[in-house]
Each structure stands twice: as structure tokens, then as C-alpha cells.
Design a protein around this nucleic acid. Sequence first.
RNA 1: GGGCGCGUAGCUCAAUGGUAGAGCAGUGGCCUUUUAAGCCAUUGGUUGCAGGUUCGAGUCCUGCCGCGCUCACCA
Length: 512
Amino acid sequence: MTWEPGNQVEAERLEKLQRLRDDGVDPYPNRVQRTHTTAEAVAAFEAAEASGADPPVVTVCGRIVRRNIKGRASFMHIEDGAGRVQLFLRQDNLGDAVYDQVKEKALALGDFVQARGPMMRTRAGEVSVMATELALLAKALSPLPVIKEQVSEEGVRRFGAFTDPEERYRQRYADLAVNPDVREVFRTRARTVAAIRRFLDDEGFLEVETPILQPLYGGAAARPFITHHNQLHQDLYLRISFELYLKRLLVGMYDAVYEIGRDFRNEGVDRKHNPEFTQVEFYKAYIDYEGVMDLAERLVSGVAAQVTGSTRIVFQGHEIELAPPWQRVTLRAAIRERTGVDYAAHPDAASLRAAMRAAGLEPGDDATWGRLVDDMLGDYVEPHLIQPTFVIDYPRDISPLAKAKPGSPNLVERFEFFIGGLEMGNAFTEINDPLDQEQRFLEMGRLYAADDEEAHPVDEDYLRAMRYGMPPNGGFGMGVDRLVMLLTDQPNIREVILFPHLRDPDRDGAES
RNA sequence: GGGCGCGUAGCUCAAUGGUAGAGCAGUGGCCUUUUAAGCCAUUGGUUGCAGGUUCGAGUCCUGCCGCGCUCACCA
């Protein structure tokens, strides 16, 4: 099977490729030279200019992003990962053969080239490479969207665009190639992950890697993806959280561990959810959820400061201060404030449902008590939590891994924290009583046995680990993608995931 | 899964039910300091897919595919 041009532009480019080959030009040569990035070349020239030294002679490489062919002198801008620089191309300097390639437009927008020559400044004042050598490095056969820029005092105006979300995600390489803002988002993402890692390393945590393919799944409320190991004849699950493996390591006498990695949840896809997403979880012995709150505040505000230079960010028009201390509100008070319902006065599902109806809410028909409480949180409280807020003390029956709150049989020592109206993370004082944990697993099994979903499995090996003795500890999980959304002011999780999941377009009736 | 909206040239977008267009890109010219370069000329379309209504469908109807927003789901 051989590629056929899909349109006229591609056909013409393929023809030019053949013409270059006929002329003995290798459109994809093996050998490349580069002495400077575009940014280094400009900096070297400016330094020489300032000191009165001779202008440097440089060899630069990059993609042609602008081309202005005039008679016997032409200009190109080439871009590499560091920036862009103009090439000044004169027939006198390049010789007829090479200049003909320019003039005949054998070198097109999108092609990669290598140019060598002394740096200079044009009459218009732009630092440029006065090319004495010019060579093709890689021919582009398909045209990228063309985006022009007008640089002025007021900033950069852009003309032309590549904005269709579907095509941007399906062809992220093209999106990145033409949209520098998008490239910057993923640089910020990389700095965010690095800053999280640095913070936890400095706090004495050990970074570990635990199984992604798991014989049992657990640690969160979600349906898993299922796969199969052929030789072992065994079904496996892609993990929905790291929790149960990380806590096993506390039994193994690491005081503090963390993992940054991918979780997979077989659930709906929307602005805040991708089937695979990046999570950071940490577990630390000898602290409770108060200690975790302290770490969470310092982690998030410290990462923001490192990544953006400030603890004050703007997200979707809201100014948000991430510096500690964050607001703390009990779930009970938060819900009472927003709905008028005090769930503590209605300790069973039936009476809580009645109270919700009396307050004008619409409670789910077969929701458990804890589920009703959680619904009120999501519907009436969460959208208002713009400034960072810990919501603490959750219903026991939606928190099977969190330790009970002394004196409150329905509550556990758990918090979730919210920023910008997004649920950012979840944490608790972890259960370390193996018999209690076993009962909680069994309760969960009963509570949700009615659901048609696969029953949640009890992880017997996890209980065995806990029976060897687990130190008291606090645990924490946070969505890294959502943190990047906050720090880059992106409203959609797909804008911070390089290759987000999309439906297969090559189905019946679809364009292929 | 439900509701609403969208799908037209490589990209961004037009087009009362009546000959499918523009800008950029491309192609052919002119130009040895341009920079959204300019000027002249010009190519490019199975209007997402399949049906239907109509003398006539990009436009109206039905189904399907994909995307967006939203609701639901997410122990």
C-alpha cells in the first residue's frame, strides 16, 4: 500500500519531491549539522553586537514557517524548539543552483532546512542569518494550517488559525506544530509534575511504582477496564487507583511513599474526565488527615509558585489565592449553608430524603444516606468552592477506607479539596485496623450488591498485609491533570492531555 | 444514554430552497532588505455518510457517524 496525495497541494508537493530527487537532492538526508539553536544564534549575535565583535557564523536548523520570495533575494523564518530566526537568502550568496530551489519554491512551508552563514541585522532591524549555505533536511508532503503573526507594540496578532477541537486532538502533532500556546501548556504540565516530585522528594517521600495491571481493582469508586493475560489465562484490571498497593508499602516499613502515574476509569468522558488520567498519591506514616491538609496546602501552593511564579492564579476569570491557610468547612456545615438541610438531624436515608424534599431538592430514589449527602455536595456546594477549600468529615458509607471519626458513628476523617469549582483531591486518616477494614469492605459489598454493576471485590491480600501491622497514616490523592488545568487556565481536561481519548472515526458511515 | 448545536476547499469561514464563494495556503508571473510583504493571473469541492421531500437540496425531513455544550451515569 502506497500513500496517495489526498488533494492538489499534496500532489504538487509530491511532484516537487520527485523533482528534487531527480536533481540529486536527498530530501531526507541522514547527516545534519547545527551549531546554534535559533535562540542561541540570536543571542550570540546580540552579544557580539554589544561588544563590537565580528558577527558569529552559525549553522541553524528548523521548520520553514514563513516564506517571502522576492526576485533575487528572499526571506524565510525557520522555527525550532527554542524559537525562530529569519534567514536572508540572496542569489549572490547562495549560488544559482541553491537559489533556484528557493525561487522555484522547492522549499515550502513546513519543510525542515539547515542554513549556515554569518549573522546580520536587516535594514528593518531584524536579526537574521545571511545564508551562504542552505540544505533541505526533511520535506513536508502535507500542508500544515498557515498561521501568520503581526508583531507590534501591542503584542502579537495572529491571522489564520487551527481551532477545530476534533482535528486538534486527533492530530495533536499538527496542533502543536502551529499553535505555540498549546506547546506552552505542555511545558507547564512537565514543570508541574517535576515540581510535585521535587516537593515530595524534599519532604522525605520515596517514589515507587506499583502495578498498573492488577488482579483485583480497588481504592476508588469506579468501574475498571478489563484485559487478559494470554499465557496465564487470567483476566486483569487496569488500576483505578494506587491506594491499596501504596499502603502495603507502609507495612513494609517505608515511612512515606508516593507515586505519580496513570489511572484508568471506565466511566463517562466529559470536560473534567478522561478515561486515563494522571494521579499523584502519597501515604505517610504517623500523621492523620490534619497532617495531610498541611502537606496538601504546601504542595499545591509551592508547585504553583514554582510553575507560575506566584501563588495567585487566574482560572476562568476567577482570581484564586493558593497560599495557605485554606478554608476548612465541615461537609455538614457546607451543605447546611447551601441547601438548608442539616443531614446530622436526619441520620437515615428515609428521613434525609424527606428533609431534602421539604427543602425543595430532588433526592435520588434509591440512594443511600451517604449517597444523598454526596449528591448535595456535588450539586449545591462544589460549584461555589472557587477559593481553595477543604471539605472535611464525610459519611462513613461512601468512604470505605477512611478511619471513623471518634464520637461520630456516621462520619469518617476524610476531606476532599476544591479549587476553582473543581474537585482536586481526596484524603483521609487511613484505616489501619484490619478487622475494621474487613467489616468495611463487607459493608460496601452489601450496600452496592443491589447495583447491577460487578460487585466490588474484597482484596484479601491487602487485609493480610494489614494484619501484619500497619502504622497509623494519612493518605492523599490528587488529579494532576486538573491541577494543570488550574495552572494553565484551561477549561477542558483534553487541553492538558496530549492525546486525549476520542471515538474511533473509522466506523460505518464515517469518513475514513 | 437524553437534550441542544455543529459538520462546506489543506486551514478559517460565507452562501432566501434556484449556477457552491472569500481570505490564507497552493500554482504561474514581477520584484536584491521583506516581515499579515505587495501587485497581476489562476487551480482547487462526492457540502460527514445513506436515504427522502421537491421541477430544483449545502439549505427542509429521517436514519447513521463524528465533534462541542449540557444533563444523567460515575459503590
